[in-house]
């Protein structure tokens, strides 16, 4: 409570922000097609039409606080499956009504935490995670397998471990399915999140991605794929495309542990 108050005061008086309209948290996303957070908070009239129409029940209503009543997606519970049904229905344009192409959504950007991710742990031979007695890890790659924009949003570097690419729209399906507990190894940083201390290196990337995607989204959506075209595109998705340029960065040794 005291921390919250201090942060509130700091934002108003030190950083000069409007504390009512800049609320970001990791793994708390706006529905796809949401405009810039500041405009969104003004335009969203809390009619909850997006929430009613969401066929997956992904969109939840925010509780007490400045964003009370506005829609959020909490990918740890239920991710957005990018059906884009909510965008069409928004009465005020808080969600871009012309957005049909899921690839142009700007919900956020996924970030992998290599200290938890099973695939990264598996490759990092010497690393024993905190609290664990022995090395754990597996070639899990669930995030890659479930991603709806495979090889655009996420790729397997050398067919071994997942790396998030610039095409990530932040739907959070990877976060929903990530097997690590209690924390997920892959989390989504919402678009426009200004907390450099939380977003770290990936913040700049997320910001650039957001800006470019917003400028893309503002153009008329002529690139929306439908019917046959969409099917063709889906058939063309090929997992082996980006898989060649991986260099194995680890030293190999002739001796194998436990082998006599």
């Amino acid at each position: 409570m005291a921390d919250g108050l201090r942060e509130f005061l700091e934002r108003v008086f030190v950083r000069g922000q409007n504390p009512f309209v800049n609320n970001y948290a990791i793994n708390r996303l706006r529905p796809p097609g949401a405009v810039d957070e500041r405009r969104f908070m003004g335009l969203c009239i809390r009619c909850n039409r997006c929430l009613e129409v969401c066929p997956y029940g992904s969109i939840k209503r925010a509780g007490v606080g400045p964003p009370m009543g506005t829609p959020y997606v909490f990918p740890e519970q239920k991710a957005c499956y990018l059906c884009m049904a909510c965008c069409r229905l928004c009465p005020t344009g808080a969600l871009d009504a012309h957005l049909r192409n899921p690839e142009k959504a700007v919900m956020g950007k996924a970030k992998i935490d290599p200290s938890i991710c099973y695939s990264h742990l598996f490759l990092d031979r010497d690393k024993v995670p905190q609290g664990a007695k022995q090395k754990i890890g597996a070639l899990c790659n669930t995030c890659y397998n479930v991603c709806p924009l495979q090889d655009k949003a996420i790729t397997l570097k050398g067919n071994l471990f997942p790396v998030v690419l610039d095409g990530c729209v932040g739907c959070g399906i990877c976060t929903e399915r990530c097997p690590t507990r209690p924390r997920r190894a892959i989390n989504v940083i919402p678009s426009g999140m200004g907390r450099v201390d939380e977003a770290g290196f990936y913040f700049g990337k997320a910001r650039r991605h957001h800006d470019s995607a917003v400028s893309r989204a503002e153009k008329p959506s002529s690139g929306a794929l439908k019917g046959e075209e969409l099917l063709d595109r889906k058939y063309k998705i090929d997992g082996s495309r980006d898989a060649s340029d991986f260099q194995f960065p680890y030293e190999t040794s002739d001796q194998i542990e436990g082998w006599d």
Binding site: R46, N48, R49, L89, T92
Partner: peptide, 12 residues
């Protein structure tokens, strides 16, 4: 059935 959606803030 999405012929009518929304609440009395905004209805379609």
């Amino acid at each position: 059935i999405y012929a009518i959606t929304g609440t009395f803030y905004a209805i379609n």
